[in-house]
Design a protein around this nucleic acid. Sequence first.
DNA 1: GCACATTATTGCGGACTGTGCAATATTTGC
DNA 2: GCAAATATTGCACAGTCCGCAATAATGTGC
Lengths: 193, 193
Amino acid sequence: MTINLRDRRRRQTARDIQQAALRVALQAGYCAATTDAIAAEAGISPRTFFNYYPNKTAAVLGQPPVLDTQAGAWIATSEAPLVDDLVRLLGQMLKDDSPDRQTLRMIERLIETTPDMQILFRKSLDAISFALAGLLQARLGAHRALEADLIAAMSTHALANGVRSWAADEAMDLDGVLDMTRDQLRSVCVLLG
Amino acid sequence: MTINLRDRRRRQTARDIQQAALRVALQAGYCAATTDAIAAEAGISPRTFFNYYPNKTAAVLGQPPVLDTQAGAWIATSEAPLVDDLVRLLGQMLKDDSPDRQTLRMIERLIETTPDMQILFRKSLDAISFALAGLLQARLGAHRALEADLIAAMSTHALANGVRSWAADEAMDLDGVLDMTRDQLRSVCVLLG
DNA sequence: GCACATTATTGCGGACTGTGCAATATTTGC
DNA sequence: GCAAATATTGCACAGTCCGCAATAATGTGC
């Protein structure tokens, strides 16, 4: 149990720091929220803050979901329609992550007051996009590398749109996010002819 | 001539600083390239550096092309296929910008050594994506806001792919970039079914 | 329980970024 | 050439982030 217990504590502390960061940032504004103030709010030393997060942005956004490329390798050989496979894969990831609505709402509010945060939010999803692009390239072939990249970027983008709606709408569940993601991708295809 | 002359000097200095920044970053690595070193290389004081660029990233990437929403408003009412209109609009912007192959190549090389730069490169194109999303929403309607966002993101992404190929391939011209952009968008539609 | 190994926390010092301000230099309009 | 506008610079300062070493906390084996 030793490792798990420590890890659990670590994750809890990381979450506490994120909550503190969001509270301070929402109250004082993102730029005015110094790492010192966040550390104070979280009840840790300024130095410890950087043991948990490399920078202020990471602390505010927390750890984004991770796309497990091992567990998603099936997509390379699947013969189901691509959109369905994409949504299935992203759904797998989303449920592993089980995001916290309250936290996401605070992030939402912060983005409203600090539009620059939106770019940082997207950036935090780039790791997913990159991993997904790799999987898609395995499916589509190296000659479709650029397209794989585009589809990956658009899919994570669509998922992010869905998650933001989910955070705002109490009545929505995670499957609703996936439905929304699928709808967006299909609509784009139709619109682009 | 007064304003134009000063402006020309300003733009030239900005370009000089960018070149200096790229030289230093390529030689020492992006992280190790301090703003002081860049200023020294450009022959200006460290303080003057920040009169031209808000930060090191901006200096390295230079000013990205700007999508003129006035000149692109026609897309809202056009009845041509969307892909064609998108490519036409982006082509208009690209030709206004007349990018410098040599500079882009240095950026390319920098991205190769510092993969994080790729994210920053994309981020520098977000302003285009945002402007384009606005135009597309005018065409598609507010109920398609999410899709407009997705199409805008994917289009600028595809254009960036094209420009990077153009920088690498001496035989390619700007129309080739646009052809590539169109091909990518079409392929994505086909692949997504 | 007890000593031990591992890990977490903290303080300190330092390099770097970015900004405001005021002094100085340069350019421009007349 | 003179006065106004603009650009450059030095200086001081707040803030970010990291390396290092000392200290505290926690889990392991006995």
